[in-house]
Computed example of a mutant assay.
Amino acid sequence: MGTDPLHAAALVISECQLGILDPGESMMAGLAAQAAERGIVGRIAELAAAFRSAGRPVVHCLIEHRADLAGIRPNSLLGSLAIKHRRMIAGTRDTLPPPQLTPRPADHVSTRAVGLTAFYGTDLDVTLRLRSVETIVLTGVSTNVAIPGFALEAVNRGYYVRIPADCVAGTSAESHEFMMRGLLPALSRITDSESVLRELRERDGR
């Protein structure tokens, strides 16, 4: 799949928010359970610390719907749930990241009010280009929608994508494995967090 230069990489953390990941509050209980079972938050936090230490960008892609839900349509299950239950509203607890993934001052936070993918209607693409990013190390949730959607849009924009398999989760083990073995290898290089950490250390001589 060609070369993907990690020296020009950014870590992207997709939709790691309490309204999605907190088992007691998530509107998608299966996804919250899978993320907890797979232990993705701790490993993502470790990657974020390593990227910051190496002087590479850390980007948080968050959902923050308007209070009036303008632009949200019930033309998808996620849109319908957001409208019905008034979830993921800007300024509410739903939108906060877990404490381990709280953005640091040098991180970039990209929010979207509408749509299903992180590039839609946001500053994400221009931010990555202005930071000379060529490779995106993609983590978070979910492997059902946001992760494959992000990977496809990133590839269309010319980025290389790596996905550490131990840093992503889906709504069920079955759907996760289906995507990880089917669509995602066609769009990205599947790896693991330890391989990414090791390469960062080797490139920086540590």
Rank of each mutant, 00 (worst) to 15 (best):
R38T: 09
R38N: 09
R38W: 07
G24V: 05
A36H: 09
Q17A: 08
R56I: 00
M28H: 12
P57R: 00
A32G: 09
P57C: 01
S26E: 04
P57E: 07
V59R: 01
A49Y: 13
F51R: 00
E46C: 11
M27G: 10
A36L: 05
A29L: 13
A48S: 11
I20F: 11
E37W: 15
L31G: 06
V59G: 09
R52C: 12
M27Q: 10
I40P: 12
I20M: 09
S26Q: 00
L47T: 00
A45W: 05
L18Y: 06
Q34A: 08
G19Q: 01
S26V: 00
M27L: 09
A33F: 07
P57T: 04
A33W: 14
I20G: 08
A50E: 14
G39I: 05
G39H: 03
G24R: 09
E46T: 15
A32S: 12
A45H: 05
A33Q: 13
S53I: 08
G30D: 03
V58T: 14
A50R: 01
A29T: 07
A36D: 03
G39M: 04
R52I: 15
S53Q: 11
V58W: 15
E25W: 15
A36I: 03
D22K: 11
V58A: 13
A54H: 05
L47G: 00
Q34M: 06
A54S: 05
A35Q: 10
A48P: 11
A32L: 06
A48Y: 13
